[in-house]
Amino acid sequence: MGAHSKVALLEARVEEREKEIESLLKSNNEQRASTVHVLQGLLDSERAAHADANNRADSLSLQLQAAQAKLDSLQQELTSVRLNETALDSKLKTASHGKCSRVDDYEMGLDSVQDMEMSDRIVRVNKRSRSNTSPLKHTQAEDGGSVFKGDEDTRSQQTNSEDYRKFTVTKIKQELTKYNFGSRVLDMRTGASKREWLELYESCMLQKS
């Protein structure tokens, strides 16, 4: 093979190699351009998402501020209502205390009047009991003899005919005074319960029957 033939063959190979290199460079450039386009799209999406997140954060911040302001307003209203309730409750307690005091004073005065009336009645009954003797009742016995029964029989009959447990304290005082137990009534302590009065009634009236 001559020199010209070798040169032509080498030139052909060089030209073919250059075409291959050019093709590879073109393909590489296209891939790089595609990659850059994809990356640019991702970057744009990221920026859009970041902007949207910022907008949402700003909106939520404004909503939170509005809710906090409303909560503060409600708290102030609640505090005002509680203060008003406290003031009204204090006024009601003061009024109730004054009313109870007036009722207690009235009841104490009424009890004092009743006690004075009862004391006067007891004194009068005791005077009558000392100046008068109890009448005796004459009955005929089975053997023909005479039996005398005094006020105790009458008192026993009256006591048995009534349920003394239903008596009020005032009624018990009246009954005891009526049957000359006024001194026992005066000996009772102030503020004695109804049960204590019933026990006194039983000891004076029932044991005598």
Rank of each mutant, 00 (worst) to 15 (best):
residue 108 M to Y: 03
residue 167 F to E: 00
residue 90 S to D: 11
residue 134 S to Q: 06
residue 115 D to A: 15
residue 83 L to W: 10
residue 163 D to H: 07
residue 144 G to H: 02
residue 116 M to R: 15
residue 167 F to Y: 09
residue 83 L to I: 08
residue 85 E to R: 09
residue 96 S to D: 12
residue 112 S to T: 11
residue 106 Y to G: 00
residue 157 Q to V: 07
residue 92 L to G: 01
residue 141 A to G: 03
residue 167 F to K: 02
residue 90 S to N: 08
residue 145 G to E: 13
residue 114 Q to K: 07
residue 110 L to G: 07
residue 92 L to S: 04
residue 159 T to Q: 05
residue 120 D to T: 11
residue 136 L to H: 03
residue 155 R to T: 08
residue 141 A to R: 09
residue 147 V to N: 06
residue 89 D to W: 15
residue 126 N to R: 09
residue 127 K to M: 05
residue 84 N to G: 06
residue 93 K to G: 01
residue 143 D to I: 00
residue 88 L to F: 13
residue 148 F to H: 13
residue 83 L to H: 12
residue 143 D to K: 00
residue 112 S to C: 08
residue 168 T to H: 00
residue 165 R to F: 06
residue 136 L to T: 01
residue 119 S to A: 06
residue 161 S to F: 04
residue 137 K to W: 14
residue 98 G to C: 10
residue 89 D to H: 14
residue 83 L to Y: 14
residue 142 E to S: 05
residue 88 L to Y: 04
residue 134 S to D: 11
residue 92 L to K: 03
residue 119 S to C: 04
residue 104 D to R: 13
residue 131 S to P: 01
residue 99 K to S: 11
residue 111 D to L: 06
residue 147 V to A: 05
residue 161 S to D: 10
residue 100 C to W: 14
residue 103 V to H: 02
residue 159 T to V: 10
residue 138 H to I: 15
residue 139 T to G: 01
residue 84 N to C: 11
residue 123 V to H: 07
residue 114 Q to F: 10
residue 121 R to I: 00
residue 164 Y to W: 10
residue 96 S to C: 03
residue 100 C to G: 14
residue 110 L to P: 10
residue 108 M to D: 09
residue 111 D to S: 07
residue 164 Y to I: 03
residue 140 Q to E: 13
residue 95 A to S: 08
residue 142 E to N: 05
residue 93 K to A: 04
residue 160 N to M: 06
residue 125 V to A: 11
residue 119 S to H: 11
residue 84 N to T: 15
residue 117 E to A: 13
residue 93 K to W: 04
residue 119 S to W: 01
residue 91 K to E: 15
residue 162 E to R: 06
residue 154 T to G: 05
residue 126 N to S: 10
residue 86 T to V: 11
residue 130 R to V: 09
residue 99 K to H: 13
residue 110 L to Q: 12
residue 106 Y to D: 04
residue 117 E to N: 14
residue 103 V to I: 09
residue 166 K to Q: 05
residue 104 D to V: 14
residue 94 T to W: 01
residue 109 G to W: 03
residue 139 T to Q: 06
residue 144 G to D: 03
residue 90 S to E: 12
residue 106 Y to W: 05
residue 90 S to K: 09
residue 151 D to K: 09
residue 113 V to S: 11
residue 100 C to R: 15
residue 111 D to E: 10
residue 105 D to K: 07
residue 93 K to M: 03
residue 137 K to F: 12
residue 149 K to D: 08
residue 143 D to T: 00
residue 101 S to K: 02
residue 166 K to V: 02
residue 165 R to E: 06
residue 145 G to K: 13
residue 86 T to G: 11
residue 165 R to W: 05
residue 83 L to Q: 14
residue 162 E to Y: 06
residue 136 L to W: 06
residue 141 A to P: 00
residue 164 Y to S: 03
residue 136 L to V: 04
residue 82 R to A: 03
residue 151 D to I: 08
residue 135 P to Q: 04
residue 88 L to T: 09
residue 156 S to I: 10
residue 105 D to H: 06
residue 126 N to Q: 13
residue 150 G to I: 00
residue 87 A to D: 04
residue 82 R to I: 04
residue 116 M to Q: 15
residue 149 K to R: 15
residue 125 V to P: 13
residue 109 G to R: 08
residue 118 M to Y: 01
residue 86 T to E: 15
